[in-house]
């Protein structure tokens, strides 16, 4: 997995311009006001996690960035461009792709059809052959119904299909949830390899040990707000604080 992609090698990043800049983001599910002014930023090539308890607003933040909420307000800038008024499909075409919490594998599509569903939006995506090299299980089962895969395989598929699109900015919503440790490790190696290949990743996680193994920085979300930011190297020093935040 360490040679995950054939894309350009990572260069030393000196740019401090944020690829994603979220300011005063508010979001609603129907009538219920869930996000109350989320603020954070992600630089190109960074892996950033959103940590927090259940119901803190992490998934809603991801959905708000992608334009999947009924109503959102504030500012979400992608590469300097304001996206708050755009629909999901226009946001996607700016080079951002989502792997949703529920994985979103389509039961009426075969594994291969699921893999080929998201259209190529930019050059530099992984080829189908490369994806099948990385995830041999998917190749073996490519004719199966998408939802007949195991949970781990479905998660692989949900990640794999957005690697084909050429989008270099990924939103991964709890990719390790409910999976066996060996699969979690494989996903960890995949994320590491993507990072080395220059991908930018926002990762929602409950499992902060997993988050610590892949991320550069951690944002703590509580009641629809970002309440803290902890760089990964300072994680040990802040472990008590983090335990308090997460209630573990």
């Amino acid at each position: 997995m360490t040679d995950a992609t054939t894309m350009q090698p990572q260069s030393e990043r000196t740019s401090t311009d944020a690829l994603l800049e979220v300011q005063g983001l508010e979001g609603w599910y129907g009538e219920s006001h869930v996000l109350h002014g989320i603020e954070f930023h992600v630089r190109e090539g960074e892996v950033v996690t959103l940590l927090g308890r259940n119901g803190a607003g992490k998934t809603t933040t991801i959905k708000a960035i992608m334009g999947l909420l009924d109503k959102r307000r504030g500012s979400v800038k992608l590469a300097g461009k304001e996206t708050i008024a755009l629909q999901a499909r226009h946001i996607a075409r700016m080079g951002i792709a989502i792997c949703p919490e529920e994985r979103g594998i389509f039961s009426s599509l075969s594994v291969e059809e699921n893999l080929h569903l998201p259209p190529k939006l930019a050059e530099g995506g992984l080829s189908t052959e490369r994806i099948f090299e990385l995830f041999p299980n998917l190749k073996e089962r490519r004719r199966s119904q998408g939802t007949k895969l195991s949970g781990g395989e479905q998660q692989m598929l949900a990640i794999a299909r957005i690697l084909r699109t050429g989008s270099k900015f990924l939103l991964l919503d709890e990719p390790t949830e409910g999976l066996a440790p060996v699969i979690v490790q494989q996903i960890g190696r995949t994320i590491q390899a993507l990072k080395e290949a220059g991908f930018t990743i926002v990762l929602v996680e409950q499992n902060f040990r997993f988050a610590a193994s892949v991320a550069d920085r951690h944002y703590v979300v509580e009641q629809g707000r970002v309440v803290d930011m902890i760089p990964n190297h300072a994680l040990d020093a802040n472990i008590d604080k983090l335990h308090a935040y997460l209630g573990v």
Partner: peptide
């Protein structure tokens, strides 16, 4: 396959840029 997918989950299909 686009049609079947959009029948199941139009939001997610839209989020892929379709």
């Amino acid at each position: 396959s686009y049609l079947r997918a959009a029948t199941e989950n139009p939001e997610l299909v839209g989020a892929f840029g379709i």
